[in-house]
């Protein structure tokens, strides 16, 4: 009876905590896991500070200078040390979130896949009872889950700071809703790009089969993709157009603007300003501006997120095909 009890405790003991490929992946990349936890702690800490004491101090400073009393002075436009600290904190958090996709790409290319192929430890794993496909699946799924979890926390905190302090932000003239990195950090894009970084990194690792070239390839490829998709961004949702005798007011994400002729044709502004002869010569009767209002934030975010996730899925698919073509596969 004793033996039976002992055996069951031993078995139960072993079942505690992660097991199998999950344990193996977490253990092998433990330092990366700690780094990610640390990065999250710093990002979350900075954002929480900005949300609480940072914002309070900036407001207190603003109030103490009398800027709220309707006696505006030049000092009110400049922002004091507390406002600067607040701005630095939000900029740091935004920059950190914007950096994550590149960190993910570099790490996935170099450490997650490239180094394993270079040093032969990938082959070691494939000669355990684990097929290369399952190995790659674990390599992608575990970091993806951790990236999504972490980015969800950071994004929510970033939105919290952003929405609660909007009046402070406009007062001290910080970034608009459509400007990077706040645009990505306030929605689903930051997470989507992080996942794209992971997928592109893994693919680069499989292609280069060496850590350093994979790192370079991954970061460059991600950068190129971000530029291409970023260029598409304004065209992902129908724009709204304003026209008038004068240039319509700046509002939201401007996509295009220019002059209108009497036939309604859009031409580039000859910059006549108030010169009537010039205006007549060019037949300019008004001006137009295509733009996205703040209400387009979510449609634009979601369409771009879809594109980015599709690209990530494509990279993953290519990775699996590449791996399957190289290694023996069960029929």
């Amino acid at each position: 009876m004793t033996a039976v009890t002992l055996e069951t405790t031993a078995a139960a003991d072993r079942r505690r905590g992660p097991r199998g490929l999950l344990w193996a992946t977490l253990r092998v990349h433990r330092s990366a896991l700690w780094f990610w936890v640390m990065l999250m702690a710093v990002g979350a800490g900075v954002l929480l500070w900005a949300y609480g004491p940072g914002a309070d101090a900036a407001w207190a400073e603003y109030r103490s200078r009398g800027c709220l009393d309707g006696r505006p002075s030049l000092g009110c436009d400049m922002g004091g040390p507390a406002a600067e600290r607040y701005q630095s904190a939000t900029a740091l958090a935004g920059g950190l979130i914007g950096l994550v996709p590149f960190l993910a790409a570099a790490w996935a290319g170099a450490a997650l896949v490239g180094r394993e192929l270079e040093s032969g430890t990938a082959r070691l794993a494939w000669t355990q009872s684990v097929s290369p496909a399952r190995w790659l699946a674990a390599k992608l799924a575990v970091p993806a889950a951790l990236l999504v979890a972490g980015m969800a926390v950071l994004t929510l905190l970033h939105r919290l700071v952003w929405t609660s302090d909007s009046s402070l932000r406009t007062t001290i003239g910080a970034a608009d809703w459509h400007q990077s990195p706040a645009y990505e950090a306030n929605g689903t894009l930051a997470t989507a790009y992080a996942l794209l970084g992971l997928a592109v990194g893994a693919l680069a690792g499989l292609l280069a089969r060496r850590a350093l070239p994979a790192l370079g390839t991954a970061v460059l490829a991600l950068g190129a993709l971000m530029i291409v998709v970023g260029d598409l961004r304004p065209h992902l949702w129908p724009v709204r157009t304003l026209t008038g005798d004068e240039y319509p007011e700046w509002t939201g994400m401007v996509v295009d603007d220019g002059a209108l002729t009497s036939t309604g044709a859009r031409v580039s502004d000859p910059i006549c300003v108030d010169d009537a002869r010039c205006l007549a010569e060019h037949d300019i009767v008004g001006y137009y501006r295509d733009f996205h209002p703040a209400s387009h934030f979510w449609p634009l975010q979601l369409v771009e997120t879809g594109i980015v996730l599709a690209l990530a899925a494509l990279a993953v698919l290519v990775s699996f095909r590449l791996l399957n073509r190289r290694t023996a596969r069960a029929v």
Partner: peptide, 15 residues
């Protein structure tokens, strides 16, 4: 590929 679990392998550079 079907007998991965039943075969042991030690590579030359012992990764």
């Amino acid at each position: 590929a079907e007998v991965r679990a039943r075969v042991g392998y030690v590579a030359q550079d012992k990764p």
